[in-house]
Design a binder for these strands. Structure first.
Lengths: 147, 147
DNA sequence: CTTGACTCTAGAGTTAACTCTAGGGTTTAC
DNA sequence: GTAAACCCTAGAGTTAACTCTAGAGTCAAG
């Protein structure tokens, strides 16, 4: 019955900007919809579903390129589970190594913060001898930090 | 004695590109060095130290803008510890919340992966009934994931 | 004095995922 | 029939932190 909803409506429904919708179309995530006589895009409800798919997949850390692949898999109703599994594995290992990196960072920052705090306590009213954290950064310790 | 080292040498010493060095200068992280008659930059050893400072601070997750502040603090030999502490606190809380986000993600991805695996086992030779992960993404569950 | 390695500046290009603009045309409600 | 609200395209702008280019000048060795 509904002859198709226009881009603004779809954008409001899905909670994205109209520019983003056109952008997804250009990137091949959304199929290009039929047009009205005047050239307006006329979307159908499936497109709203695709938009939600996109946002959900994004929240799982997939890039638009990856989401495009997922959407294509989904549309062709091919098996695809193997491919999806591989994507999930890759993402999972990315996420895990990022967590490890961040934990190491956390430890370093926390240690710096403790030093900072100690110096601030020590130097109440006394002559400051300089921030220990800055000193540490400046001391070329030749510690080859990763990237 | 050394009248100053040129940009290529400095770059090799510090392990960064010469373009990055000029870039840091433009961004105010490195002081602009004196020039030779022909207009070549003549750096002194302190600049190598600053470059190492930059790389180390970057590895701690500071942005160039933040590093510029840190370098300025360090140069003016002002107390500064309070400011540094605040920066460290902010970074630390950023890092911690990022870790939490990633852990939530990890759980979701791992759960998807398990489902995927189960389906693959189940459907050995049997008709595939479609990837459960794709299904889940497509089902507009209205779960408002953050962003 | 010529060759090759080096350096200079200004500015464009890179990546991701949008976001916005200019300069138009279309629909619809009054 | 006209004004408000909507839509179109093509392309520029955004962010961070570089990276690279073109076209020209400089320096050291032989």
């Amino acid at each position: 019955m509904s002859a198709g909803v226009r881009i603004g409506q779809l954008a409001r429904n899905a909670g994205v900007g109209i520019h983003a919708i056109r952008f997804y179309e250009r990137r091949g995530l959304l199929r290009r919809p039929p047009r009205s006589e005047g050239g307006y895009r006329l979307f159908d409800p499936d497109d709203a579903r695709d938009l939600k798919f996109i946002r959900k997949a994004q929240s799982l850390g997939f890039s638009l390129a990856e989401i495009r692949e997922l959407l294509i898999l989904e549309r062709t109703s091919a098996p695809g589970c193997v491919h999806v599994r591989d994507l999930l594995r890759r993402k999972l290992s990315d996420v895990r190594s990022k967590i490890e990196e961040l934990k190491a960072l956390e430890a370093q920052l926390a240690s710096g913060l403790r030093k900072c705090q100690r110096e601030l306590n020590r130097s109440r009213g006394q002559p400051e001898k300089g921030c220990p954290v800055l000193k540490e950064l400046a001391d070329a310790k030749e510690s080859e930090d990763s990237k």
